[in-house]
Amino acid sequence: MTPKELKQILQALVEHGVNELTLETPDYKLTVRRGGEVQVVAVPQAVAAPVPAPQPPAALAPALAAEAAPPPSPAPEGTKGVDKAEECAGCVEIKAPIVGTFYRAPAPDAPPYVEEGDRVEKGQVLCIIEAMKLMNEIESEVSGIVKKILVKNGEPVEYGQPLFLIQPL
């Protein structure tokens, strides 16, 4: 990619109000976040993630909508929500900002980003959610200890679904 092409991409992001863009080729993966960072990662050609079924338009919801979403109503007795609260009082739930497929590692043969019991920092990548063939890195909202991973690798996730419980430090 030439500097001129990169400049055109950045101008398009600003003109259209896009907050994040991921561009993937056989040679590299480029993620651009407005107000954030630019990452270029070399990706081997042999790495391929399963392609999910087409997602409904809700898959296009911006990542920032998760912050503006109202808190979920309390779960009735005997449901999974009560079990999560009992497991980790005071924990922060990291929720899926989009609909897609949950992956714990950047590639099938790579180690997971985090394991239960790991210490994480705010902004550290916890997992990837693949949506419409785009790999979206999900970052921790707090510094703390990963108490529970609530989703299995390769499972589909819904918008707002809890993915991790993190005990803040």
Rank of each mutant, 00 (worst) to 15 (best):
residue 1 M to S: 14
residue 1 M to Y: 10
residue 3 P to L: 06
residue 4 K to Q: 15
residue 4 K to S: 14
residue 6 L to K: 11
residue 6 L to R: 13
residue 7 K to I: 12
residue 7 K to Q: 15
residue 14 V to I: 12
residue 16 H to D: 15
residue 17 G to A: 09
residue 20 E to M: 13
residue 20 E to I: 10
residue 21 L to E: 09
residue 21 L to S: 08
residue 22 T to G: 09
residue 22 T to Q: 07
residue 24 E to F: 06
residue 26 P to E: 15
residue 29 K to Y: 03
residue 30 L to R: 01
residue 31 T to Y: 03
residue 31 T to H: 01
residue 32 V to P: 00
residue 32 V to T: 09
residue 34 R to F: 05
residue 36 G to Y: 01
residue 36 G to V: 01
residue 37 E to L: 10
residue 42 A to R: 08
residue 42 A to S: 10
residue 43 V to Q: 11
residue 43 V to C: 08
residue 44 P to R: 06
residue 45 Q to W: 06
residue 47 V to D: 14
residue 49 A to I: 04
residue 50 P to N: 02
residue 51 V to C: 06
residue 53 A to L: 14
residue 53 A to K: 14
residue 53 A to F: 05
residue 56 P to D: 15
residue 56 P to A: 14
residue 61 A to G: 05
residue 63 A to L: 15
residue 63 A to T: 12
residue 64 L to F: 13
residue 65 A to Q: 10
residue 65 A to P: 00
residue 69 A to R: 12
residue 69 A to C: 08
residue 72 P to M: 03
residue 74 P to F: 08
residue 75 A to L: 09
residue 76 P to Q: 08
residue 79 T to K: 07
residue 79 T to N: 07
residue 79 T to Y: 06
residue 82 V to E: 15
residue 84 K to M: 14
residue 84 K to V: 09
residue 85 A to S: 13
residue 86 E to W: 07
residue 87 E to R: 12
residue 87 E to H: 07
residue 90 G to C: 12
residue 90 G to A: 13
residue 90 G to Y: 12
residue 91 C to S: 12
residue 93 E to M: 08
residue 94 I to A: 13
residue 98 I to D: 02
residue 99 V to C: 05
residue 101 T to G: 09
residue 103 Y to C: 00
residue 103 Y to K: 00
residue 107 A to S: 15
residue 107 A to T: 06
residue 110 A to I: 00
residue 112 P to N: 03
residue 114 V to M: 06
residue 114 V to Q: 02
residue 115 E to L: 12
residue 115 E to S: 14
residue 120 V to K: 00
residue 122 K to C: 02
residue 124 Q to E: 12
residue 127 C to L: 02
residue 130 E to A: 10
residue 131 A to Y: 03
residue 131 A to P: 04
residue 131 A to K: 01
residue 133 K to M: 11
residue 134 L to C: 02
residue 135 M to F: 13
residue 137 E to W: 01
residue 139 E to Q: 13
residue 140 S to R: 00
residue 141 E to D: 15
residue 143 S to A: 15
residue 145 I to T: 14
residue 145 I to L: 08
residue 145 I to V: 15
residue 147 K to T: 10
residue 148 K to Y: 03
residue 148 K to R: 15
residue 148 K to N: 13
residue 149 I to L: 13
residue 149 I to K: 04
residue 151 V to D: 06
residue 152 K to H: 13
residue 156 P to F: 01
residue 159 Y to K: 07
residue 163 L to Q: 08
residue 164 F to N: 03
residue 164 F to R: 02
residue 165 L to D: 10
residue 166 I to Y: 00
residue 166 I to H: 00
residue 169 L to H: 05
